[in-house]
Design a protein around this nucleic acid. Structure first.
Length: 423
DNA sequence: TCTGGGGTCCTAGGACCC
DNA sequence: TCTGGGGTCCTAGGACCC
């Protein structure tokens, strides 16, 4: 028998991370909020049981939170990213065919063990990750990535499975697929689900059995691939090394509305600095920069306004000063007087590897200076903390539009001053 | 009052070329 | 009256993912 796919997925990842460092949260409902403390993006099982939905704005469920003493946290990405790395390190010990799929998920590809069962292996993975990190994991095992996803999904829902489900050669595969609404299949979103439902395709078993050509026409090659994968024909390989980035973004909604051009310029400048740091960390240079900004989509008393502006670089660059110059121009083009901006962002595209040996035909010396400056600022900020050195155009942290994180837990694992056991 | 952020891929249609 | 055909590249918009 050939190799199989294993999908490992942390349960309620952000909420579980909060729990690892605060035993008092065990057994209690916990939710974690999106940036700006806007929406619920992670829920413990107890919070789910109270009917708190994924992605709902906090103000809509405030009554539940208050009535049941739900513990609410702002998101703490420094903590989650670090916990994620620890989990991935443990998982990577099981096989070289290993793909980090998201912050809380990884695919493994293994050949069937000669001793023991695949389910045993799943339990071993689960136990080792828990021992090393304290984060509970669900494990789905099957012949394709899509089926492994589905198995994982069922493993989470079923008490009997205790978080591990092996769907390979399972006599219950048809039944498992029948229990899965088509909307829950990986690759089927709300639009496709509606379309499928209108044709009488309501569960994964029915989707598996549709005519392939029809799937191709109705759902594009993506849909046809999903059907094949449900049939056990693997179309999606393990990607052991991440493909190069095609774009990088930094965007935020504001804690308070921005109405002035100066305010927008400052916010855009600070986003540019952040996205440029990311760019250099990836060893890339950008060929174009886009600034976008918008008012609130939900406001009833003002018209919705959203706009974007793009500039192309004469030469790809990774130097913050150059990017700031373009971003400022774009911010001015996007700005509209009288609008109360709620969010903005900076997008870098046309990414190419940044070669340290590239020389420009014109203005090379000035450019090399700008690059050296950017790298020096990176190093200082990395050593002494973000914001130690700031570009003049970037506002001080307390500028008002800054994102809200009013309920953030300590950065237990990445900041000496906030480490566990230090008050 | 209060509604996240960061990505990828696919398709259709237009521009352009020979 | 009759208005080629094939190829490439780019972009915007849509759909999906976590």
């Amino acid at each position: 028998m050939p190799a199989v796919f294993i999908l490992c997925d942390a349960n309620n990842f952000y909420a579980s991370c909060e729990r690892v460092f605060d035993a008092a949260l065990t057994g209690r409902p916990v939710v974690v909020l999106s940036n700006n403390d806007g929406c619920v993006v992670a829920r413990s099982n107890e919070a789910k049981a109270l009917g708190i939905g994924m992605g709902v704005p906090l103000f809509r469920v405030r009554h539940i939170v208050e009535a049941h003493g739900v513990r609410v946290f702002s998101s703490n990405y420094a903590l989650y990213a670090d916990m994620s790395q620890r989990i991935m390190t443990v998982l990577s010990e099981f096989t070289p065919e290993f793909e980090v799929y998201s912050i809380d998920e990884a695919f493994l590809r293994v050949s069937v063990p000669t001793a023991g069962t695949l389910a045993d292996l799943g339990r071993e993975i689960q136990a080792r990750v828990y021992r090393h990190t304290g984060v509970p994991l669900s494990v789905g095992i099957a012949e394709t990535k899509t089926l492994a996803k589905l198995a994982n999904h069922l493993a989470k829902k079923s008490d009997k499975a205790r978080g591990v489900l092996d769907l390979t050669r399972s006599p219950h595969q048809d039944y498992a697929l029948e229990c899965t609404p088509v909307r829950e299949v990986w690759g089927v979103g709300p639009k496709y689900a509606r379309l499928l439902k209108s044709r009488g395709v309501e569960n994964a078993r029915q989707l598996r059995d549709v005519e392939l050509g029809w799937a191709r026409r109705a759902l594009t090659v993506v849909g046809a691939r999903v059907v094949q994968e449900l049939r056990g024909v693997s179309c999606l390989p393990i990607e052991t090394c991440p493909p190069p980035r095609k774009s990088l973004t930094h965007s935020r909604s504001f804690g308070r509305r921005v109405e002035s051009l100066a305010g927008l310029r400052e916010a855009v400048a600070s986003f540019t600095v952040r996205v440029a740091e990311k760019l250099r960390r990836h060893g890339l240079a950008a060929g174009a920069l886009t600034v976008f900004a918008a008012t609130s989509r939900f406001s009833k008393d003002e018209p919705y306004y959203a706009n974007s502006a793009t500039v192309e670089m004469a030469y790809p660059t990774d130097a913050t000063p150059e990017l700031l110059e373009r971003a400022t121009v774009c911010a001015e083009r996007v700005y509209r007087a009288g609008c109360r901006f709620k969010s903005a962002g900076v997008l870098l595209t046309g990414l190419v590897p940044a070669s340290p040996t590239t020389i420009r035909m014109y203005g090379d010396e000035r450019w090399q200076r700008a690059r050296r400056l950017a790298r020096a600022v990176d190093e200082i900020n990395e050593r002494f903390g973000r914001g130690t050195l700031r570009y003049g155009i970037v506002a001080a942290p307390a500028a008002g539009w800054g994102t809200k994180f009013e309920k953030r837990s300590p950065r237990y694992t990445t900041n000496w001053d906030e480490m566990v056991g230090i008050a």
